[in-house]
């Protein structure tokens, strides 16, 4: 049997909102250690890697490893039926055809059950090598979302240049161009407002706005985002999910013609 309970559905609601633009379906790998999802978007440009540790759940039981193929659109619709304060329980039996979502209101007076058919999926699994990145930037997630949105008006790609002076985002298009520079924070009053740059060597990479704007849908999950970059390798855009895990987005860079 598989059963995982969260005291508040808000986290799971936000996770679904953070992946639904990129993924139509995904396999949820459930084991004793927790729930893992690794899936590429249809165009195979980006990869989503989600990790929810079993110890982050209020209750977690997984008698045997399960791979459950889920339709993300349907799952999003079901999670939208839960109030943020509702308790959410995911339940499936061994060799399941279905997964059940159970929402319970805070006062325990409303109990909702949604059963979703699982899908058989033949998914490729990618091995992501351990990488030491040339630049690792931590910055407020809302600031990153704002920059991606603002610069998307000027072109379909954003160039990110990171040096020890700071991080610069540039977009250029037919109607003009724009750039935004952020310096490392000298002294931040609050940790979540800080811009911190850990640079081994400068990096300059270009990424499609469309994907970055999908990644920033994870902004409600965490006040800070971590961007890891090295020359000619995918960007890693990481959001912590409370004390329970993280979501990482990998995005292939644009390659010079």
């Amino acid at each position: 049997m598989f059963e995982a309970r969260l005291a508040q559905s808000a986290i799971l609601k936000k996770v679904l909102e953070a992946v639904k633009d990129l993924l139509t379906e995904a396999t949820f790998e459930c084991s004793d250690s927790g729930i893992q999802v690794q899936a590429m978007d249809n165009a195979h440009v980006s990869l989503v890697s989600l990790n929810l540790r079993s110890d982050g759940f209020d209750k977690y039981r997984c008698d045997r490893n399960l791979s459950m193929g889920m339709n993300i659109g349907t799952m999003t619709k079901i999670l939208r039926c839960a109030s943020s304060e509702d308790t959410v329980t995911l339940r499936a039996w061994d060799n399941p055809d279905n997964i059940i979502f159970i929402f319970e209101s805070q006062n325990k007076e409303k109990l909702s059950e949604y059963e979703m058919k699982l899908i058989n999926m033949d998914q490729e699994h990618l091995g992501i090598p351990e990488t030491v990145y040339s630049c690792v930037v931590k910055m407020p997630s809302q600031e990153f979302a704002r920059i991606c949105k603002d610069l998307s008006q000027f072109g379909e790609a954003i160039t990110i240049a990171c040096s020890k002076e700071g991080i610069k985002f540039t977009a250029a298009g037919d109607y003009g161009n724009a750039n935004i520079k952020l310096a490392q924070t000298a002294e931040a009053d609050k940790e979540e407002e800080a811009v911190i740059i850990d640079m081994q060597e400068p990096v300059k990479l270009t990424f499609a706005c469309r994907y970055l704007n999908s990644f920033v849908k994870a902004t409600p999950l965490c006040a800070q985002v971590k961007l890891s970059m090295s020359g000619d390798v995918p960007l890693v855009c990481e959001y912590q999910i409370g004390d329970i895990g993280h979501i990482r987005y990998y995005l292939a860079p644009k390659i010079d013609d």
């Binding site: 990618l126 390659i255 013609d257």
Partner: peptide, 14 residues
Amino acid sequence: TGTQGRIDSFFKII
């Protein structure tokens, strides 16, 4: 602005 790379050309399928 260049050609879009594919993620599976960077990471090996296992």
